[in-house]
Design a protein around this nucleic acid. Sequence first.
RNA 1: GGGAGUUUAGCUCAGCUGGUUCAGAGCAUCUGCCUUACAAGCAGAGGGCCGGGGGUUCGAAUCCCUCAACUCCCACCA
Length: 870
Amino acid sequence: MENYNPAEIEKKWNRHWDEQNFFHSEPDDREPYTIVIPPPNVTGILHMGHILNNTLQDVLVRRARMMGKNACWVPGTDHASIATEAKVVAKLAAEGINKSDLTREEFLDHAWKWKEEHGGIILKQLRTLGASCDWARTKFTMDPQMSESVIKVFVDLYNKGLVYRGVRMVNWDPAAQTALSDEEVIHRETAGKLYYLRYMIEGTTDYIVVATTRPETIMGDVAVCVNPADERYSHLKGKRVIVPLVGRSVPIIEDDYVTMEFGTGALKITPAHDVNDYVIGEKHGLEVIDVFNSDGTISEKSPLYVGEDRFVVREKIAVELAEKGLVEKVEEYTNQVGYSERTGAAIEPKLSMQWFVKMEKLAEPALKAVMEDTVRFVPPKFKNTYNHWMTNIKDWCISRQLWWGQRVPAWFLPEGGYVVAENADEALRLAREKNRALNMADLRQDEDVLDTWFSSWLWPISVFDGIRHPDNGDIKYYYPTNDLVTAPEIIFFWVARMIMVGYEYRHQRPFNAVYFTGIVRDKLGRKMSKQLGNSPDPLDLIAQYGADGVRMGMMLSTSAGNDIIFDEAMCEQGRNFGNKIWNAWRLVAMWRGAATDGVQPLASKKAIEWFGAKMDAVLGEIEGCFANYRLNDALMAAYKLFWDDFSGKYLEIVKPAYGEAMDSATLSATIGFFEKLLQVLHPFIPFVTEELWHCISDRGAKECVTVSDMPAPKSVDEEILSRFELMWEAVTAIRAVRKNRNIAMREPVGLMVIADGNFPAELSPILEKMGGLSQVSVVTEKPAGCDGFIVKTTQYFVPLGEAVDKEAELAKLTEELKYQEGFLTSVMRKLDNERFVASAPEAVVAAERTKRADAEARIGALRERIEALR
RNA sequence: GGGAGUUUAGCUCAGCUGGUUCAGAGCAUCUGCCUUACAAGCAGAGGGCCGGGGGUUCGAAUCCCUCAACUCCCACCA
């Protein structure tokens, strides 16, 4: 009747842990265990992916802490340059303010205000989940010391020649109006059209047909290119063509880049708006005509459509060309188009001056580390992906034409050129080495900011201030960190780069292992997203099932690297489990209220012996699971230990008869078990376990399960476990008989057994109690009028007098006999096979022999029973 | 166009370098129970030609080939 209600309790313990400062870590003599959180966007809100990710981290951290390690989980947020700036721009726009009307300083004021108001909400939400972060160490990637580290690294890499500035074709996001790195571009198949356009040969009425998907770029055309081997066009060599509408005369050039089979085998060259065209243009010394503005509208360089959007122009120009009879045909065509990861805008290749990091050298040690498992990937399949990317790594465009972020520490000089320095004063000093007359006012700092990932890649180092102070106590103690838990989506953005910079600045891996989570999907297998509206609000879930329930729901459905199909039913299971534990304690508490010094029943004594062994076995199992990052299996093992073995079996066995009291020896053993179970479960479901830990005894504020010592597994007496199994099989069989016969538990039945080596006589008291037996008696002959069953080789009989249905019993036994004989045949087939005996390992053959013996014994027993019945 | 992964009970998944415990778990389902911790529960039960086909082997869910379906990553063919 009484259900566990998590809400209040969870709040209470969260507060308590916080007050006690349990999660704060300082270096000491203990072994450290460190995790740095993948910093969520500062203005982000909690979604299911965060729940998954942070639950996993919390389980690891809490367990490590209980294992006596000095656990430190560093939380923090990321300034998410482009995403945050976009949000601020949108917010200002809603207020009628244009970003372009603001100065950089004014805009940043708004941005910081926004950050102060909305920033860090996600960290509060993480607390609700029970995340045991060291909140005093909370970092933000734009904290002054974090930014300083970023700048320091930029300058250092520049001085090492690993950062350079240059004009390159980059991915341009016309919505955010900034350059992007290759990783920020998502290619998607997009339905479009392939236009076949006629370019008149200069001075003739002849024309050449060119296929293009982007007619709006013709204003930037500077040539038409054909393959030199293409005989169809050999007569046009050296001729010129007129660009349609534009009227410009451009040359026909030859390059074997052109595929003769595609389209018409003639390609229009627009160096400003296509990477390949750019390469060809460079090769042939062609002009670059950029006909787009940075927002994707047509620029003044174009004679037509100035100021209109590129996609509008595409439609218009197609119509106009068609009217002029310059369109040969139009085909439906699907191709890969790049889109901005953040704004979704179609990427425009654009030639521009940007800052880059040279990656090749940085990648070397980082690649090696992963391939040799110095940095362990869980699951290892991601090594492939990583390997491929790292061996084909390209330079990283790190400048962004935004304001929110670390500003590029380069200062331009009036007479051209620039200096790179950690600050303006230093820049001036360097500038004066070139021109002594310069003043601060002559220097103009680069307007661009750095890619967000250029600060996040330092995260494991910079949160411990290891860039500015490489020898400080924190970085030396906590670095390298232990586990990184993150999504495979950011393996290149973040994981790879952290490893690279880790080796560059610490000559050490940043973490020992990376646990890649899956993507959270809904029941239909769709990725959970805001757009689809198929993602439940984690806070609603927590309100409904408790943080413990949600954590457990997440944990139960995850395994490393596999996507998880999230089902709320799993949270319900988690909630039910909390309730189960809660009620189990209520039962034990009742017993404690009335315990006596009475004699300990033999059944209880045996149960304690057994459950102790069982617990040790499961503790070992769990340890193995953790070693392999199989956290869901670890939880399931603990779950079954509590539910099936402890509640379902142990508590039932030691439960005193109605109206009787429990003896104190059994009581204290039971409470001891309960405590251990709470400890084992605590990393997964910290709240309910903490609550009960304090119900068990009145401990001081400092004695929390959170900081208790995890029970260690001991060697297990397998014999005890297997004897118990045999006994419990008999219990199940008796219960089945009851069910079949409609005999209620309270109605006692007898049990007779032909005791052999497989009869666990020492467990008879438990058998009696759990089977609701009047008594267990040993017989040598099978009695008449019985239902019976066989466990392994032992024959058991339940006397039922007239109630026995002889025919049914016979049928059951005959069927069992048939099965056993078939089984024996299959075993014999093997043992009679010389090649099997010769080539199979000793142990396998021995196992088969045992099976034969067991089967024969069972068959013997079955035959006897059948005979007797007849 | 390359590469990787997945395909085992209704659902979500385990099954490591091949060996029978006639393939396991949780959830769901079915049957019977409000038995004095818990109906968010208890007791029982059913359910799988391990994607299809072929091969290697004494033996294959497990190795090889092939086909199919789904997923993901990478990639500058207009």
